[in-house]
């Protein structure tokens, strides 16, 4: 089992262990309140409006084919990404903040590789948080929430001119075969599972320090990212509990 494999496998463990109702979330934070990374220009008369860069959602929607293979569906995935970004624009939890959409760097941009590396690292960090905050605890982190993407986020800070970065990760698949399978698995565990689930997380990273200031894990039995209202619900659930 590779490093990524462990993450994914434990994500599953997290999913199965944590889930109870239809849409359940669990969040962790290391701050009570969000502050500007660069508050220099703020004055009492003109308070700094928090800028938040929305990273391209790491989303995959799949079909479980008859043979049991999950086959990512490009068109659905694309729709889901667009819908998520659109819905984030109107999200209650983000009111009063200035949202910046992350524009992918040009192919020749010397920072392109680092910006990509930050996004890949986020996936590894997210998997570690799911594994160790939801499934198997790390004794040294029992009362601590101190994961980070590190100082290299300075590149993202300068690139997007934002105080925080919001990362979204969602995995979804759709299939009648999958539903049967889930039910078998769930029944074997004595867990009542109706239909299927959507699993994902949202991560808020302080671009001044690189620290993960807030993390929310979502499991939803009814989530559907293929239409706007489903995406709105998913966004609401993903941002549930985000510090202001």
């Amino acid at each position: 089992m590779g490093i990524g494999g462990i993450g994914r496998a434990l994500m599953l463990a997290g999913v199965l262990l944590v889930l109870g109702g239809c849409a359940s979330t669990r969040d962790f934070s290391s701050v009570k309140k969000l502050d500007a990374a660069t508050p220099a220009a703020a004055t009492p008369a003109e308070p700094h409006v928090l800028q938040l860069v929305v990273m391209p959602p790491d989303v995959e929607l799949s079909v479980l084919t008859a043979g049991g293979m999950t086959e990512p569906n490009a068109a659905w995935t694309q729709t889901a990404k667009s819908l998520l970004v659109d819905q984030l624009g109107g999200a209650e939890a983000l009111r009063g903040k200035k949202l910046v959409r992350f524009e992918p760097p040009a192919a020749a941009d010397p920072n392109g590789a680092v910006l990509n590396e930050i996004q890949h690292l986020h996936r590894a960090v997210g998997n570690a948080i799911v594994m160790h905050k939801l499934a198997v605890p790390l004794p040294t982190k029992k009362d601590r929430f101190d994961w980070s993407l590190g100082q290299e986020v300075a590149v993202l800070h300068d690139y997007a001119h934002a105080d925080y970065a919001l990362f979204i990760y969602v995995r979804d698949s759709y299939s009648s075969a999958g539903r049967i399978f889930t039910q078998i698995a769930a029944a074997a565990l004595g867990v009542g599972l109706a239909g299927g689930q959507q699993a994902g997380f949202a991560t808020l990273v302080d671009l001044g320090t690189g620290n993960v200031v807030w993390f929310n894990f979502l499991v939803d039995a009814t989530g559907d990212l293929r239409d706007a209202s489903g995406a709105a619900d998913t966004v609401k659930n993903l941002l549930h509990g985000m510090p202001q």
Partner: peptide, 10 residues
């Protein structure tokens, strides 16, 4: 088709 988690699928 119905909904299914990809965390599981993955």
């Amino acid at each position: 088709l119905t909904l299914f988690t990809l965390g599981l699928g993955g």
